[in-house]
């Protein structure tokens, strides 16, 4: 049976682990370790290998949900992770110092994968930091022929993560519909 993946990426503390947990049918498997160096200020623990969750679909198919490690030094794993992926969810922490740089970094890092599939961007922590606004995010995405969806997201809310993933699928294929 085919194995399919949705990849969650973004900087440290953006909510990847929580987002996977929100829609996974199993408690997300975390590979956190005590943070050190650059990540310590953002959160006490960070993902060092990858997070994993799964959505069980009708007919026995599964969608594997993988979260990339938050620290850039693990980026050698990303190519392996995206193989067989059907799309990318990018979470950006709006309270970080330079969220646009973060977004640009991940869009560039996954550009080949995005070219073949699509991306949906969730901006987290907007309640703590209301700027930059979503309008400003779209201004940063001008280079896209078809700008991807960008939503304010609370990664703890299943509904928010669900809408983000749905938008990713519709961005790939607007013709598909649910029952």
């Amino acid at each position: 049976m085919n194995q399919h993946k949705i990849i969650f990426t973004g900087p440290v503390g953006a909510g990847k682990t929580t987002a996977i947990d929100s829609i996974s049918d199993i408690p997300a498997i975390k590979t956190d370790a005590d943070a050190s160096d650059m990540t310590r200020q953002r959160k006490k623990a960070t993902t060092v290998a990858m997070d994993y969750g799964v959505m069980n679909l009708e007919g026995g198919e599964k969608i594997h949900l993988y979260g990339t490690p938050g620290q850039e030094r693990f980026d050698f794993m990303w190519d392996i992770l995206v193989t067989g992926g059907i799309g990318l969810v990018l979470l950006v922490d709006n309270s970080r110092a330079a969220p646009f740089k973060d977004m640009a970094f991940f869009l560039e890092s996954f550009s080949d994968f995005i070219e073949k599939t699509s991306v949906a961007i969730g901006v987290t922590q907007m309640d703590k930091s209301q700027t930059p606004t979503l309008e400003e995010y779209y201004a940063q995405l001008k280079s896209f022929d078809c700008p991807p969806p960008v939503f304010a997201v609370d990664a703890r809310k299943t509904q928010d993560v669900s809408i983000l993933v749905q938008s990713l699928l519709f961005a790939i294929d607007p013709g598909v519909s649910c029952e």
């Binding site: 009708e58 509904q159 294929d173």
Partner: peptide
Amino acid sequence: IKRHKGLFKKILNKLHIPVPGESDTHEST
């Protein structure tokens, strides 16, 4: 027409937006 049409439909059915009153958060483990 894209690949994965049947798969996407299954995922969308799975992600069916909950009706009011349903829990919208999961406890973090």
